[in-house]
Amino acid sequence: MTFEDWFRTDRLPHIYCAGCGNGTIINCTLSAVDQMGWKKDDTVFVSGIGCSSRAPGYIVTDSLHTTHGRALAFATGVKLANPVLNVVVFTGDGDLAAIGGNHFIHACRRNIDLTVVCMNNQIYGMTGGQGSPTTPWGCLSTTTPYGCAEPAFDLCELAIAAGANYVARWTSYHVKELEKAVKAGLETPGFSFIEAMTQCPTNFGRRNKFKQVADQVEYIKTHALLRAKRDRMIEQGEKVPDDFFVIGELMRRKRPAMGVKV
């Protein structure tokens, strides 16, 4: 099989805008799932609300497209009731970190055996470009017309602090690394969190001086700092610029996990 076998072809075309990075992240995730040798019948995709959360609707397995922010709570019920099922959650920055923030930290704390792929486009795309908890300081959105005046969440730090077993961040540019990170997450018992920074040309790039899709992808690429390099910079007393973000595997540990298949 290839990742293409996992698509529900009668649902295409999808709703994503031209230039959207979500498709790349779905492909990376399905490639990783396919490499795991998982059966379609034993795999469930769960999501909340938003652009990212439309992904399970395009996948041929059993899929649960739930309410805004609640995907992890639904997924907890699925996984605990039937640990034989492999459960993967697609979410976005608004879904996971704003309305779903409480479910996020508690799912990490329980360390329940789910793999969560968060498409972080730093904006509410589905509703037309409102600021989210990860919109960078100073960026424009329809609800931050004078520049975002709130600090952004670091979702990976949050997941690490709350207890997740596996945490990694990559981008829609780093497809090979992202695919490997998702696979590592799928292999890890307990809660795995993979954040994928991605472009939203329609609702973020357009308002924030990225005239072309490639401009934003280039920005993401050049502002992503490998963890090892970041650590080296700190060691040498160099300042890590505020607009850079760390990529790589950020946590891998073996805390006791819930809902692991026996």
Binding site: K40, D42, V44, G57, V60, D62, S63, L64
Partner: peptide
């Protein structure tokens, strides 16, 4: 779920 229906459930 898990019985091979491949059902999509949405609100």
């Amino acid at each position: 779920f898990g019985k091979g229906y491949g059902v999509h459930v949405t609100g």
